[in-house]
Write a protein that binds this DNA or RNA. Structure first.
Lengths: 376, 376
DNA sequence: TATCTTTGTGTGTGCGTCCACAAAATGAGA
DNA sequence: TCTCATTTTGTGGACGCACACACAAAGATA
């Protein structure tokens, strides 16, 4: 018996003309319905909408983009990129989206602020508003400031999307981020699973994280401790603060820490600064499993070198790409996207890192071009 | 000091007209160069090519697609989909690509064969050739048959791409697959790292795998054993064959296996059939870590239920999507893609599986529509 | 001068956007 | 019921960009 599955299918695009024909109206009327241009009688409206429900019409966005007579200005506002590969990767995602939609008549403006300086954030946000963009991608840090910014954007009907995290109490078109508590929980699970049953755990916290909002770090810690409390291992977790800058301080602090807690076999850093701990531990000759976040150059190097065991990636460039794409699609074709978008939490080890590198580090044609200008 | 990074950039698309102007020729000549239509003087050719090198012209494929006057017929030829979620996910990727490029005047034909029946493969392949497709996506199983098929395709100048694995000795436009030895190596690493130092390891092999080519399984085993040999643990790995169908047989065989090897704490199944082992072990009350491949419904359920510890995913739907996209881009816009394309090996646990499900299981608008017809 | 090669120009096609104008339908008032 | 005004609808075209072909103009060669 020879069973063959075969299908031949002629794929044909539904055009405006087709919809007009099906609804028994003219293409002009369909156009009026689709774009809310001019008046349409209730009867015609209903007929067109019924057809639209049935046929799932999606206009080719790339064709719409060249046809549209609109100049689009997108503003990006995030913490400073310099020195933060996480934000650099997010911006790479922006760039990739802009390159992909290069047929759009587009202007982009990049605004970055000092994430430790609320007033800088405030002035930067006001500059964003002053430039009157058609859409904004926001990498938020200060909650109240962001609420104020988005209220102004809501008033002017300007769509905005978040990357990295969501700000509750606002109405973005969409947000793209990792679920931070899940991230902490996952890291806890990983170090627990790779540590002997009698081992204890360390949670190293950077005194001043360079890459992410304080809220994210808090959420991660909640998830992290949640895991250990669920497993009744809360008292096996020991904490230590470290400096992202002062290696000498870390060496001493870590040596004292491991003298006090010799059973600690697994360590977590709930930020991207795991390589700092890894280097310090290498110097003082202590060998424990370390897990942290993000595929930064330092972390990748530390992992290739065997000093980091697991990395958890949150696809920053995909976040950036999708945020821009979503806003552009909305501006060009209309329609409402899914608002909540959680990125996969990629588990990276030395054995699979090669396949992820290109997805994280080099995902855009060019880099982010930044024209640094110092004001006043 | 208030340092503000700001960039304003007007993005503008390079058009054929622009290239013509820059090269000091007419648009017609540029068109002739781009599409190899008609004759062009060496001087003009050089001028145009120099500009092309400089400006990185990429024609908007979606616009090319509506302009091109070509009917494209793509053939998909893979093992039977029924009962194999891996191939179903690959076909979901096909469908997604077809939907995304629905402005192309496209016909698709799906051919599937029994991967245990060389003669069925042969007759299916000959049907593929008989239908004279413009491009073929191949999910290969039988090496020699595939070489024969691709020789015929090479002769007629028909581009083809592989999913799931590459067949050496052929010249595909591209292939999209996971690196199977790395996959085996990664699985070895995972079960090693999550097993106590004095533990031993099991490698369970399905007698007749339902989902993948024998070659893939062999490659995985090579990578898997490579890890243990490198760590001088080769003698700690114990093997057992199991039946993908007969649960009763497995129960007995596994009980005997663990009686003989009580120190086995970590187990690998180098196919997607891990859930079968997991269920059997649950029935006979043995608790070991199990790692296997692929996010099939069974495996996802087993993982949610806590019976599977790690899954390694190979992004079948992305493979399918990219294979189709690559062929379409080549047919429409020309140009040569990257040939070697290795998918990331996603490490999945109960803690991050939620974020991957949609990427694997439901990644296309509709399902794969198959019109089953039994011949002769 | 005749012939051939190369190049420029023009036109049509595909589809969605968007404007202008004409045609039709509707309503109100006389 | 007729007229006028208003609303709604149909039609046609231009534009954006790439593709594809036809034909004429220019140059080169014999």
């Amino acid at each position: 018996m020879c069973k063959i599955h075969t299908m031949t299918k002629n794929h044909q695009k539904i055009r405006i003309k087709d919809i007009a024909e099906m609804a028994g109206v003219s293409a002009g009327t369909v156009d009026r319905v689709l774009h809310g241009r001019g008046k349409v009688s209730p009867a015609a409206l209903k007929a067109v909408e019924q057809v639209l429900d049935k046929v799932n019409y999606n206009p080719n966005i790339y064709l719409s983009a060249i046809s549209i007579r609109k100049h689009i200005k997108i503003a990006f506002v995030t913490p400073h990129i310099k020195g933060s590969q996480f934000w650099e990767q997010i911006h790479n995602g922006f760039t990739k989206a802009i390159n992909e939609y290069n047929m759009v008549d587009l202007t982009t403006e990049v605004f970055t602020y000092d994430q430790y300086d609320l007033y800088d954030c405030r002035t930067t946000y006001s500059k964003v508003l002053a430039s009157k963009p058609d859409a904004v991608v926001i990498g938020p840090t200060f909650k109240d400031e962001t609420i104020r910014l988005t209220q102004a954007l809501d008033e002017s009907g300007t769509p905005y999307a978040y990357v990295d995290s969501m700000v509750e109490g606002t109405n973005p078109m969409a947000f793209y981020s990792a679920k931070q508590d899940s991230c902490g929980y996952l890291i806890a699970k990983l170090i627990h699973q790779t540590t002997p049953a009698d081992g204890e755990y360390a949670l190293f916290q950077a005194m001043r994280v360079g890459d992410e909002s304080a809220n994210n770090t808090i959420q991660r810690k909640i998830g992290f401790m949640d895991f250990f409390h669920k497993h009744r291992l809360g008292d096996k977790v020991h904490r230590l603060n470290f400096s992202p800058l002062d290696g000498g301080y870390n060496d001493k602090a870590l040596a004292a820490f491991f003298a006090a807690h010799p059973n600690v076999k697994g360590a977590a850093v709930l930020s991207s600064r795991g390589s700092i701990i890894a280097e310090s531990l290498k110097r003082i000759g202590i060998n424990v499993n370390i897990t942290c976040l993000d595929l930064t150059a330092d972390n990748i190097a530390a992992m290739m070198d065997g000093r980091l065991d697991f990395l958890v990636g949150q696809r920053p460039n995909l976040q950036g790409f999708l945020a821009v794409e979503t806003l552009l699609k909305n501006l060009i074709c209309g329609g409402r996207p899914e608002v909540e978008n959680y990125m996969p939490l990629d588990i990276i080890t030395r054995e699979n890192i090669d396949f992820y590198k290109e997805y994280y580090v080099q995902n855009s044609t060019g880099g982010v071009e930044i024209n640094t200008q110092v004001e006043k």
